[in-house]
């Protein structure tokens, strides 16, 4: 039994999306009458006992330095061993890029059914059925896992992390770790920023911004809101903004609590990447822009006038001078 949550880390720190996965896994454990445990691979500087706040009782820590870097093949084998040691029957991941690299491998290795991008708790009244996004946000599917071991990767912002007071027992764990076959020749990280896919608030700009030199207003608003920035595809294609900011059918699919679209028309291929946002705000000078149909709040007007005012109002609300 046991629900085992993969607590993903980067540079020694547990990632934000992991806390959601921990709370979600702890809830599944509660619903199925078992305990929640976590596994951490690689060296960490965070206090792992503190993961107990999210409801896990034990943290298996494999502090092997060879695991400081993600290699899908090596990670999969290591995780499979921990799964065996812990006797876990449900594995939970945050549905980020790491999970996309390893959860499918683990699924194949353990012959364990996988639901990628879950948006709700499993229904266990008749087997184990999990709701997930399909058709790029146009629908949901209910997927039944037919196997003894079940793997679920949780979509970002689909389940709220709740911190309580517990302390987890940290179990130093030794396993055999293969040497990676993939060599990392360089890495380029956007330091200190919340990755777009994990952000709870996203401010996004489209062609209405006219050029990269005007992005200051987008960045100022994002900063005031504590948001990540994104853009439409033509903006990335014209190199006004870096490619990893491009959202939509061919870019990132995101599901923040709040998506603010500035000067974006709302083409269906753009919506495919953002329609899972809980609340959408659209500011566009064209009252007929299709995006308003998908929005919760809208303002018709010129972004160059409205956005600086909006930034001031947000700062006032947050008490930022």
């Amino acid at each position: 039994m046991a629900v085992l949550i993969f607590a993903d880390q980067a540079e020694g720190h547990i990632k934000k999306a992991t806390y959601e996965a921990l709370s979600y896994g702890a809830k599944i454990a509660e619903l199925t009458g078992t305990t929640a445990e976590a596994v951490v691979l690689g060296s960490v500087s965070d206090d792992l006992g503190a993961l107990g706040q999210y409801g896990v009782k034990k943290v298996y820590h494999v502090a092997n330095e060879a695991l400081n870097h993600l290699d899908a093949q090596v990670y999969t084998k290591a995780l499979a061993e921990v799964v065996q040691q812990s006797g876990a029957t449900v594995l939970v991941f945050a549905h980020n890029l790491t999970a996309r690299a390893i959860a499918p491998r683990l699924s194949a290795r353990l012959k364990a059914g996988l639901v990628a991008g879950a948006v709700g708790l499993p229904d266990t009244t008749n087997g184990f059925v999990v709701k997930k996004n399909v058709f790029s946000g146009k629908a949901y599917a209910f997927v039944k896992l037919n196997t003894d071991i079940k793997i679920v990767s949780l979509n970002p912002n689909a389940y709220k992390a709740v911190a309580g007071t517990g302390v987890a027992e940290v179990v130093p764990t030794t396993i055999t770790v293969d040497s990676p076959k993939v060599k990392v020749t360089s890495s380029d990280k956007v330091a200190g920023e919340v990755p777009l896919t994990e952000a709870t608030v996203v401010v996004s700009g489209g062609r209405g911004l006219k050029g990269p030199e005007n992005w200051g207003i987008v960045e100022d608003l994002a900063k005031a809101m504590g948001a990540a920035t994104a853009c439409s595809r033509p903006v990335a294609d014209s190199n006004w903004r870096p490619h990893h900011e491009h959202v939509g059918q061919t870019g990132e699919a995101i599901s923040p609590n709040l998506y603010v679209a500035l000067g974006i028309s709302g083409a269906i291929q753009h919506l495919a990447g953002v329609n899972r946002s809980k609340v959408i705000v659209v500011i566009n000078k064209d009252a007929e822009a299709p995006f308003f149909k998908a929005a919760d709040y809208g303002i018709v007007g010129d972004i160059f006038e409205i956005v600086p005012k909006l930034t001031e109002e947000v700062k006032k609300l947050k008490g930022i001078a």
Partner: peptide
């Protein structure tokens, strides 16, 4: 083997409609 079964589908609830705010 088949490890999973798609049981059924659901469409997302219709949006309540946009609330417009004056510029």
């Amino acid at each position: 083997e088949k490890l999973t079964t798609y049981v059924n589908y659901e469409l997302p609830p219709a949006k309540a409609g946009v609330k417009m705010v004056s510029a």
